[in-house]
Design a protein around this nucleic acid. Sequence first.
DNA 1: AAAAGACACAACCGCCTTGGC
DNA 2: TGCCAAGGCGGTTGTGTCTTT
Length: 288
Amino acid sequence: MGRSPCCAKEGLNRGAWTALEDRILTEYIKVHGEGGWRNLPKKAGLKRCGKSCRLRWLNYLRPGIRRGNISPDEEDLIVRLHKLLGNRWSLIAGRLPGRTDNEIKNYWNTTLSKRIQVQEARLSAGGEEPISKKSKNVLASPLSHNVVRTRAAKCTKVFINPQSPRKELLLADYDKPMDSDHQPNGNEFSSPSSFENSSSSNFLVDFGMDSELGFANLVSSGFSSGDQLFSEEMQLYQQYWSGNIGTGEDCVVDDQFQPNTILNFQSLNSLLDADANQGDWLELAETS
DNA sequence: AAAAGACACAACCGCCTTGGC
DNA sequence: TGCCAAGGCGGTTGTGTCTTT
């Protein structure tokens, strides 16, 4: 009944890893490589759950891990990315070389969320009650009004409402706040304009890509050097919007765009530099 | 100096997604 | 197409350390 546990718990070590266990795991992975976590403990001679081995390796033993001393720049980046992505720790960590999702998550929950809370409390003149341990989880949750939900929007086609100007989706439009009550469905990806018009079907994007991947790559590829965003795919996309690719009504574009294809953001830097509501312009549908 | 409370972070848990068959 | 195993992820807990009283 129910899900079988990842491993038998009996006779396994739990809690903090010893130096010896670390060495065994490191040596084993050096020889055999990563993967096969379930069988790894038995093969390596570790009395640990496979998941535990994986976590230990990814978060602490893996080469290139940086520990502690999160710089102000990194901190700033975390705050911005969290504002945009919510608790997508792995995505955030992907933008911070050497940092792990677990470390960032911990840092957020113990330090940053509180600091932000204090800052916000100062801004809003009324004094707020001190942060209790119980309120931590609330603080850690994404700010719902401006978090980009990037999950599961598989796309293979682009549909354009012929009535809509092609460049309607350029960044200028995204300055407008989106109707937060709007609940997109299916594979819909709507421009703010379409939200404002309560016409969610004006614009559908289906790029044959995992939008999460696309956005993750957007974040990781262009964030620190905004103009890099204008990759080949970007140029293709721009050509498309300027009418050089695809013609006619309800243009269907297949295979023109690679997974990293993104909308015409001027740069992610400017995106993140803008005010707190900036994240509102993008919302990808969650599949239900 | 000791106890209590707060903090920081490593590790665990369970759900979800993905890929192979 | 459905099932299952494996991997990945985010939330939560446990515990050692630090700070305050």
